[in-house]
Design a protein around this nucleic acid. Structure first.
Lengths: 129, 129
DNA sequence: TTAGCAAGTATACAAAAGGATAGTGTTGTT
DNA sequence: AACAACACTATCCTTTTGTATACTTGCTAA
């Protein structure tokens, strides 16, 4: 990506206006929430998971936050929620096509981070004050 | 990215262990903080900015959060802070090479989001409950 | 009829993030 | 002498986020 393309994108992002004016900022912030990302990653790993499975996979999450994050993902079309009216009830979650592309972008980002982690950790250790 | 590569990456991410064990998760969460992202974007747009310039560009940020976010970016090696001991003091901020790659990844992500925003917004409107 | 499960919801509380705003130190300008 | 510029720091307070845990609902099996 050259500088011109970059400047075009940055203009698109409208970073200097409040988020009411820029839904991209809002969508970004929503998707990159800590719990939301973890849920997308475990759904990417396991393809289909039930509520309790996701809870087990995303270590430390409370049912309240899990419900909240799953609802947001569903609302935004990243995750599909399927209810099987059996007894006891069964509910399955999986990524939609849109959610899978989001996962890919997330993994791309992580892919870049992995080799940089040692440098970042070293920087942190050397950074005083 | 095929499924095998994806599964390798996901294994790398170690999503099912607490973040003490997985610095990648920590680095991800730190970089994808709301204010931090906005700062990286405006620094990408303007190349070099002084404290008050960043404050003006990132609408709504308080000096407290600005300082905190800039320090974190500096600590992690994404941003360089240069002090000119003039009067009044002049402090300039700019992205490092590492920070510029991070910006690129961020813009890649946004690049994907832009065309999807209308669909996501529509989803949200239709999603009741 | 009581027990039990899944997928939550509800409630109470604790912790963290963030906003508003005043203050600091230095020196040039009015 | 008072004020302004700059880059913060400090303090108080509100809001948001999150945890822990008890409760609910519907049905089925013992």
């Amino acid at each position: 990506m050259n500088d011109k393309r970059m400047q075009e994108m940055l203009a698109n992002l409208d970073v200097e206006n409040p988020s009411e004016v820029c839904p991209i900022k809002d969508v970004l912030a929503t998707m990159l929430d800590k719990w939301t990302m973890m849920i997308v990653l475990v759904l990417g790993k396991h393809k289909v998971l039930r509520f309790a499975d996701v809870k087990r996979s995303v270590v430390g999450i409370s049912p309240k936050m899990l419900t909240k994050s799953l609802r947001t993902l569903e609302r935004d079309g990243h995750v599909k929620r399927t209810v099987y009216p059996e007894v006891p009830i069964r509910v399955e979650y999986n990524l939609t096509d849109q959610g899978s592309i989001f996962l890919k972008k997330l993994v791309d980002l992580a892919d870049w981070i992995v080799p940089h982690v040692p440098a970042i950790v070293k920087n942190r250790e050397e950074f005083i004050k």
